[in-house]
Design a protein around this nucleic acid. Structure first.
Lengths: 168, 168
DNA sequence: TCTAACCTTGACGTTCGGGTCAAACTTCGC
DNA sequence: GCGAAGTTTGACCCGAACGTCAAGGTTAGA
């Protein structure tokens, strides 16, 4: 049976989205998309004959990853780029996983991917730890505050109706 | 007995540090310290007769808080300012806690501090959650990778000594 | 009292992460 | 094959968060 392409058969990265669409769906501006391309965060997309950029769903996902990393980590784009590139290495590896090529070479690549991921992981764990620390401190503070509040409220009600013991 | 000031008696905020010292100890530049002052993140410090800025240990701590928030949250300085100011409200409240002033006024202040802290808390929790999510995903990926690695290693050793069963 | 080390303000420069035109070109629907 | 809507590149602009002189004033120690 010949190749009869179905919707579910279309590879995720079949490009068909124009830049406006992508901008709308990802919530970033067209300028930002071109800017990311300029900075190497997005690879140059395929083009129509006229030069219009054509993006794929994979590109959309990439943009979303970039934004999340940006917001969560607050790192400069250069570092974000490294991180997303590292992810790409994974996908790349996964894609090349089947073809019967040099095993030891794959091993090397895999090791590299692991190393990179390890670093990312450590980095994020650091942040999580530090943030969790702040969080617990804030929590503590909040309970303190509520304690004070209760205290004040007690005094206030006591002030309002001083029929019983005047002084505590 | 008259006030006989001892080292441990010196309030933490007795100013005696020049800007260079502070810069060195906090790891930020003098420019940055002046900049923070300009932006209201640091209150104008006391000065020597000649005009030299004199900082206190409390100021150093404040700078450190600012930097931590900056690195952890990646927010603009304006927001960081709000957050540190909110903390200051707490200290302020704590300081004014004893004098017998209008209780209901204190209550109001306290409520505000609680509100602010609540917002901070929610914000940080969001971040922690999102980051924890990323973290677990990365962890997952790592185990996958290690699985693949094992697989490859198996195949490699099998390749190296094909005396037993050639095909699995 | 002199000088090296330190500090002051002011002003201009820089990098990052885009925003905002402008002028020309493409695509698509009718 | 025309016009509206979408896209292209290029260029300039912007706020944030500082860096980097420059020209002078201050302090402390010998």
């Amino acid at each position: 049976m010949a190749q009869k392409r179905q919707a579910s058969d279309v590879p995720v990265d079949e490009p068909y989205l124009q830049i406006g669409e992508v901008a709308e769906r990802t919530g970033v501006t067209q300028r930002t998309l071109r800017f990311y391309e300029e900075r190497g965060l997005l690879k140059p997309p395929t083009r129509m004959e006229g030069g219009f950029r054509l993006y794929s769903e994979a590109d959309i996902q990439r943009v979303e990853r970039i934004r999340r990393l940006q917001q969560l980590l607050g790192f400069p784009l250069a570092e974000i780029k490294e991180m997303v590139d590292a992810e790409e290495v994974k996908l790349q590896l996964r894609a090349e996983y089947r073809p019967e090529a040099a095993l030891s070479q794959k091993r090397t690549q895999l090791l590299k991917a692991i190393e990179v991921t390890d670093r990312q992981f450590a980095l994020i764990r650091q942040k999580v730890d530090a943030l969790a620390d702040m969080q617990s401190k804030l929590e503590e503070r909040l309970t303190t505050f509520h304690g004070w509040l209760d205290q004040i409220d007690e005094q206030l009600t006591a002030e309002r109706k001083p029929k019983a013991k005047a002084k505590v």
